[in-house]
Design a protein around this nucleic acid. Structure first.
Lengths: 220, 220
DNA sequence: GTCTATAATTAGATAGAC
DNA sequence: GTCTATCTAATTATAGAC
């Protein structure tokens, strides 16, 4: 199941709203365009949701719930902290590729302070930030990872994981022969990010000690 | 000189336009807000520039010219390819921190195909992309860097270098005690990115063999 | 070159028939 | 619950006095 086909009007509106808000940002996205994409008339938005802002919050809630559903089981799995962190990074890269709307909405909103940004941070982002930074400080205490500040790591990780998919339209213009939705590219991307942050030992979750497609350490 | 105080109306409009376009995106940024920020009246925009779109292009041209002026001398310096690449990465991190407008405008535009995106890519981005990917392939041919695809590296690099500053408003909400404009944080960020991509040997341009603030290799 | 006034368009939200 | 019609406000751009 890649994506269930929405049936009810509210559900169709949520899906359409995500695409439009992600593409254009809150202000520039029009309720008429959202309604047209959903195949309904514009006043339906105010009927099923009380306002454009309420639709935006509902759409963002829906998306973060999907992220939590994807990440939670991976993190709950057994294994040491390094392996769990590596699995979480890989799952996040795959989510960023499958749902570029999430990080598109984040960068549209996070460039300037606003009520929407405060709501985003308090409702959804702070918990994710805490998970990453707490985990990283734990790993650093064991000398299991490079000595990089946890806030810096958070933005290295999120930025490095998401920009290829956030800017997929740009990537297609730069490299028409590369498809940002190609699963093997996404796997290679996730492997690279894990190898850079945690070292090659945990680079492949499915084959922890594999020697195929080795990622050599940078020479020192 | 951090930033010259603009005097002429066109110059004040360019500076104001960068801030507004970066904060809100092209569509959501209003010419009235740009004019108000510049301290002039709104019709001055159409007098000095022919349209909102022409003002946007002029502002973007101005910003990419500053980027080129910052990066070119660093790249022209002597040194082997690894050292030149490391210096370019460091200079880019510092530029992203000093001019967050550049990457904010990029993410606002690159989320969806448009005439503005095509103009951006053809006029400014393709050359930068070519520099990074050509350099990376050269380094890979010498086994001097990890075996990561060059397109993936470009987005890892740009995303990892810029998101902390693009999303500075979010970062301040998450960590009120951390200032994304703090020079020591920016240095640490640049060092970390260089160390991850090129190894700790070239982590500090000013002290290539220093042992203070070591960045240990991830254990394998 | 700068100002006031305004034209033409489009936005989110609402009223009321069905 | 869905439709048409429309209200109010905001947008970019222009006209014309100075």
């Amino acid at each position: 199941m890649i994506k269930a086909e929405a049936t009810s009007t509210p559900s169709k509106l949520l899906d359409a709203a995500l695409v439009e808000f992600a593409a254009h940002g809150f202000e520039a996205a029009s309720t008429r365009a959202i309604a047209a994409r959903a195949g309904v008339h514009q006043p339906q938005i105010n009927y099923h949701f009380s306002s454009k802002a309420a639709l935006w919050r509902a759409a963002v809630d829906h998306l973060f719930a999907q992220l939590a559903a994807d990440i939670a089981p991976v993190v709950a799995d057994a294994g040491d902290d390094r392996a769990r962190f590596a699995s979480a990074v890989r799952a996040f890269v795959h989510f960023a590729a499958a749902h570029p709307e999430l990080n598109r909405i984040m960068v549209h909103e996070a460039t300037v302070d606003s009520d929407r940004l405060r709501w985003l941070v308090d409702t959804h982002v702070r918990a994710a930030f805490g998970f990453v930074t707490n985990m990283w400080r734990t790993l650093r205490a064991d000398d299991a990872v490079p000595a990089i500040d946890d806030t810096v790591v958070y933005y290295l990780l999120v930025g490095g994981a998401s920009l290829l998919y956030v800017n997929a339209a740009e990537a297609r213009l730069l490299r028409p022969d590369v498809d940002p939705t190609d699963p093997s590219l996404i796997d290679a991307h996730a492997d690279a990010l894990v190898a850079l942050l945690l070292g090659p030992a945990v680079a492949r979750s499915t084959a922890p000690t594999t020697t195929d497609r080795p990622i050599p350490s940078p020479r020192s």
